[in-house]
Amino acid sequence: MLFKPIVLHVPKSTLTSDDAGISITQYELLPPPSSITAPYHLHANKNANPTLSYVPSLAFFCINALLEWPDQVHTYGPRRPYQPPSDRSDFDILQALIPTYRPFSPHHRDFDLRLVDPRLWAVLVQLYEPLPPAFRTYTLPLSDVHLPLLQRIPSTAHFSLLTVLSLARCSELTDDTVVELRELHTLAALDASLTALGSFGLLRLAKTLSWTEPDSDSDAEHAPERRGPWGLRVLYLKDCINVDDKLLDCLPRFPLLSVVGVCVPAVVQRTPT
């Protein structure tokens, strides 16, 4: 199943006129998301079809087969214990799947998780525990093609995906584009400081909170699911000039919101003498 990437875009408009003098507004469309190449794509192209000096384990092939369905891994039961290698000659499933990972590297300073396919990371953190600290967080662009798929991973007693989104100083975040964040069902913290986002935009985002309904009688046994940023807990709105006192009316719509940082710059008007 394919999911559209989450892209914030304010189209640029140009006012022109035709031969009859009629005003025409032209909008510049967003380039296709496929033109944006993620770091892990470049790394995968350079290391396509690697030659292995050993016979991989069955887990190696099974995990690679699960890359297309990271949102279904939770059905396989609780996580398996991860045993780090005690010697450099020992087999390590992490190093087998990610050749750039070195188990004995001090603090894993040379390891860049951004070069790893996010679907592989999502599968590993659901299958094994405890993983090394280098696998604790994954930084992913909002427009990554796999982000909507990762947002479909359900929370379980052994795993919970928390999304921390930083859009500070993002010129594309407005009251119109903020509704695109409705696909971030695991959004826990949002930094929208120094943007054009205002109280009206946050009200629109709050209205995206909903419950799914069964599409047919065959889905009637499935319980409704929450859709939208129900889990938003932290919200920063520093220096957002479009935020006013109406913000207090929409904040209670986010049931788990507990930390709100708002600092609107004061406007001083000089009175002529």
Rank of each mutant, 00 (worst) to 15 (best):
I6N: 04
V7T: 06
L8V: 05
V10A: 02
K12Q: 14
L15Y: 01
T16H: 07
G21E: 00
I22C: 12
E28C: 06
L29H: 05
L30M: 11
P31Q: 04
S34V: 10
S34P: 00
I36S: 12
T37H: 13
P39V: 07
P39Q: 08
Y40S: 07
Y40Q: 08
H41E: 15
N45C: 05
N49G: 00
P50S: 02
T51R: 15
L52D: 03
Y54C: 07
A59L: 14
C62R: 14
C62G: 07
A65W: 08
P70C: 03
V73L: 03
R79A: 15
P81I: 10
R88N: 10
F91A: 08
F91D: 11
A96Q: 09
L97Y: 02
I98G: 04
P99A: 04
D117I: 00
P118A: 01
P118N: 02
W121T: 03
L127S: 13
L127A: 09
L127T: 15
F135V: 03
R136E: 14
R136T: 12
T137E: 15
L142A: 06
S143E: 09
L149N: 01
I153K: 05
F159L: 08
T163L: 13
T163R: 05
V164D: 15
L167E: 07
S171D: 13
S171T: 13
R182G: 01
H185I: 11
T186Y: 02
T186P: 04
A188D: 10
S193M: 08
S193D: 07
L197Y: 08
G201W: 03
A206R: 00
K207H: 06
W211R: 12
D219F: 11
D219M: 13
E221H: 12
P229D: 01
G231M: 05
V234W: 13
L235G: 03
Y236K: 15
L237H: 05
L237W: 05
K238Q: 11
D239A: 14
C240N: 06
V243K: 06
V243C: 06
L248Y: 14
C250M: 11
C250A: 12
L256T: 09
L256F: 11
G261K: 13
V264L: 06
P265V: 07
P265D: 13
A266H: 10
V267F: 09
R270N: 07
P272H: 10
